[in-house]
Design a protein around this nucleic acid. Structure first.
Lengths: 200, 200
DNA sequence: GTCTATAGTCTGATAGAC
DNA sequence: GTCTATCAGACTATAGAC
């Protein structure tokens, strides 16, 4: 059976809303983004916006879920012959480049109000958990390969990876216009994986 | 000449206000902290609060300035015989422990509105600049000692140090209650300076 | 359009320094 | 006793969720 025209229209509009929310959340953060902004940018009435998302919090949660799902998909798309360590590096690089393009970070670190509401959002938690599981597996695998230090707990490493995607260093460097995106990504990746000390 | 009683009272109250703002900013962040909260916590009328600080933005800026000044003082108090690298490590450790005690981070990463207003606040910029200068010197010195990789630009390293003080990893680990404060600090310091890869 | 939250102001009463 | 700072809290204005 063919999907009715009306339904497809709704789905497309929902995607459009999420696209706009993604950009605006990345640009202004949760608190500074207004629902008026979103509606205006999508080009729909505010009431229509609320037909799709019952609250600002739900809109943000759904945007995050879409990001997590995309991240999991990205992870699954990596060449199978790469090592766990290489996969982790590739994933972080992908996330950083998404950020440089204006995407939202993987942690709601910019708003404690948002964080609170996300913690009670079932779809969000489920999506987060599945990404967590995938990343934890990779980190453990990299530890087994003796690529990542076993002295750091896995949950610390996973959290630190998330945190890199909302590291303000990225924006400061980008704002400074001194370095290219490629350089910034290299600094951040090396800084995270290899540290800043001189290797002996 | 003795400082008049009235003046000393005013100074003490100003300190008390800044103490409260420091705690509340650390706890809730700029946007979620209200001036009513501050006044109530200090135990004064809101009007009196505005006698000291003409706006919420100025109050936050002054709180940040005090933090920077304390940081510079902390830096100056380090034993002179320590290497630049050790000093940087000690400074970051001090900042992380302050954070764990509920202090505010060194970057206004939690609020873009605050960040905007700080960028036009002269005393804030002056104080930030002086801390920047001190840290940049240390990083360059550590590079000369071959302790910090010369491949990473100094401004990247300095920004990354600031960013570590507002790294959400800290709060996530603290909230998890799995690790002691000492462990968390060790993970963060090792993660930052040494990285997460296995040393060969 | 409605309602809430909150920054910032104003007033009349009060307490305490001198 | 006078005076000034402070108090409690009402009030305005505005932004923004819904």
């Amino acid at each position: 059976m063919v999907t009715p025209y009306r339904v497809r229209q709704l789905q497309m509009r929902e995607e459009a809303i999420l696209d706009v929310a993604h950009v605006l959340l990345g640009k202004y953060g949760y608190d500074a983004m207004t629902m008026d902004d979103v509606a205006a940018e999508v080009g729909i009435a505010k009431a229509s916006l609320y037909k799709h998302f019952v609250s600002k919090e739900k809109l943000a949660a759904r945007t995050m879920v879409r990001l997590f799902d995309r991240t999991v998909a990205q992870l699954a798309a990596l060449p199978a012959n790469k090592s766990a360590f290489e996969k982790l590096r590739d994933m972080l690089e992908w996330a950083l480049r998404e950020r440089l393009k204006g995407g939202i970070p993987h942690l709601p670190s910019t708003s404690s109000t948002l964080e609170q509401s996300l913690m009670t959002d079932e779809p969000y938690l489920a999506s987060l958990l599945s990404l967590n599981a995938a990343l934890s597996l990779l980190v453990d695998e990299a530890k087994n390969d003796n690529a990542i230090s076993a002295e750091l707990p896995t949950d610390y490493v996973v959290t630190a990876i998330y945190a890199r995607t909302c590291d303000p260093t990225l924006e400061y460097m980008q704002r400074g216009r001194t370095y290219s995106d490629d350089e910034i990504v290299r600094f951040m990746l090396d800084g995270f994986f290899v540290g800043i000390v001189v290797r002996s």
